[in-house]
Computed example of a mutant assay.
Amino acid sequence: MKTFVLEGKSREIAASSADQKRSLSALRKNAQVPAVLYGGEKVIHFSVSFDGIRPLVYTPEVFLVELTIDGAKKMAIVKDLQFQPVTDELLHVDFQEIFADKPVMIEVPVVLSGYAEGVKAGGKLTLRMRKLKVKALYSNLPEKLVINVDKLGLGKSMQVGELTFDNLELMNAKNAVVCAVQLTRAARGAAAAAAAGK
Rank of each mutant, 00 (worst) to 15 (best):
K2V: 07
T3N: 09
T3E: 14
T3P: 04
F4A: 02
L6H: 03
K9Q: 11
S10N: 10
S10V: 11
A14I: 10
A14W: 06
A15M: 08
S17N: 11
A18Y: 06
A18I: 07
Q20D: 09
K21V: 10
K21M: 12
K21L: 12
R22D: 07
L24Y: 11
S25N: 12
A26I: 14
L27T: 05
R28Y: 10
K29F: 06
N30C: 11
Q32E: 12
P34W: 02
A35H: 04
A35E: 03
V36E: 06
L37F: 03
Y38L: 14
G39D: 03
K42G: 08
V43D: 12
I44Y: 02
I44S: 02
H45W: 08
H45D: 09
F46W: 02
S47A: 15
S49R: 05
S49D: 14
D51W: 12
I53G: 01
I53P: 00
I53W: 00
L56Q: 04
V57M: 08
T59H: 00
E61V: 04
E61R: 13
V62E: 00
F63E: 01
F63Y: 07
L64G: 09
V65E: 04
E66N: 12
L67G: 05
I69G: 01
M75E: 04
I77R: 00
I77H: 01
V78E: 07
V78T: 13
Q82V: 07
Q82S: 13
Q84L: 11
Q84D: 15
P85T: 12
P85E: 13
P85V: 11
V86K: 14
D88G: 11
D88N: 15
E89V: 15
E89M: 13
L91V: 12
L91K: 15
H92N: 09
D94H: 02
F95D: 00
F95H: 01
Q96R: 14
E97F: 08
E97V: 07
E97G: 08
I98E: 01
F99G: 04
A100P: 14
K102Q: 13
K102D: 10
K102E: 13
K102S: 10
V108T: 01
V111T: 10
L112W: 03
L112M: 07
S113K: 12
S113L: 09
Y115I: 10
A116Q: 02
E117V: 14
E117Y: 11
G118W: 04
G118S: 07
K124W: 08
L127Y: 00
R128I: 08
M129G: 03
K131I: 03
L132I: 00
K133T: 10
S139Y: 12
S139R: 15
P142E: 01
E143Q: 15
K144R: 15
K144I: 01
V146D: 05
I147H: 00
V149I: 14
D150F: 06
K151E: 13
L152E: 02
L152V: 10
L152D: 01
L154H: 05
G155S: 08
V160T: 05
V160M: 03
G161H: 09
L163F: 05
L163I: 05
L163A: 05
T164P: 09
F165M: 04
D166R: 09
L168F: 02
K174S: 07
A176F: 05
V177G: 00
V178M: 01
C179A: 05
Q182P: 10
R188A: 08
A190H: 13
A192L: 15
A193D: 09
A195W: 02
A195R: 08
A196H: 10
G197A: 14
K198W: 11
